[in-house]
């Protein structure tokens, strides 16, 4: 089960509201490589994991991603607080978000495409899943790189820098986990069986 702790993983304190920034940072909330997709991907994949190390790592990283989802939401919320009608009108990118969501937080890509499970997978195959997870961390790292290119707000970049570094650490851990998993497979052919599904065949040898 999950228990909520009334604190963020990393402090979010954005001094200056800026709807323009919010209109693209929302992509890390509900975009194709965002934190909602990350948490749903890892927390869904763990059920088919045949090994304890993979169950644990997906649970722990998936849980951390829920904390990152909350941090991204906190950035968007603070960037859009106390806005005036004039500020909304002055920014066309935010105005198109505003018309549907006002200053609420909604999982969508910066392009306006709502969050979709089609941007993630849960394959039931340990090597396919962990390889996807490594790619997912790189895609999120890239999005944070691009946010750093577009944002000149030090309060925002402070948090984005932290989130970006977490992607690199998670990539390392998924890579180590993939190695632990591959070492448990047949060393002549790691693809001989799917250990999550072909249990009877594996027992027969």
């Amino acid at each position: 089960m999950f228990i909520y702790e009334k604190k963020l993983q990393f402090p979010v304190k954005i001094a200056t509201p800026n709807p323009k920034l919010a209109a693209f940072i929302i992509s890390q909330y509900g975009g194709p490589d965002g934190e909602l997709g990350a948490s749903m991907r890892y927390l869904s994949q763990r059920y088919a994991m045949p090994y304890a190390e993979a169950k644990g790592l997906l649970t722990d990283i998936g849980t951390e991603e829920l904390g990152h989802l909350e941090m991204v939401a906190a950035i968007v919320h603070q960037l859009t607080r106390n806005l005036t009608d004039e500020q909304v009108k002055a920014d066309p990118a935010f105005a198109s978000y505003f018309v549907d969501h006002t200053a609420g937080v909604y999982p969508t890509a910066a392009s306006g495409f709502p969050w979709t499970a089609a941007s993630m997978q849960s394959t039931g195959d340990v090597i396919a899943d962990l390889t996807e997870d490594m790619a997912a961390e790189q895609k999120a790292r890239k999005t944070y790189d691009n946010i750093l290119r577009l944002s000149d707000d030090p309060d925002v970049n402070n948090v984005i820098r932290f989130l970006r570094e977490r992607e690199i650490v998670h990539y390392q851990r998924f890579g180590e986990c993939l190695r632990m998993v591959q070492e448990k497979q047949d060393q002549k052919n790691v693809y001989l069986y799917n250990p999550a599904f072909d249990k009877n065949r594996m027992a027969k040898g």
């Binding site: 990393f10 402090p11 944070y144 290119r149 820098r161 989130l163 970006r164 650490v169």
Partner: peptide, 29 residues
């Protein structure tokens, strides 16, 4: 964003370290 200097690989546009406020809440974080 990491305990390990060996894994700290920042982007060229990033500030060298994030500012974390003082106080007991940040200490806990």
């Amino acid at each position: 964003g990491t305990l390990f200097p060996g894994l700290n690989l920042p982007f060229h546009l990033a500030v060298p370290g994030s500012k974390v406020p003082a106080g007991n809440r940040a200490d806990l974080q």
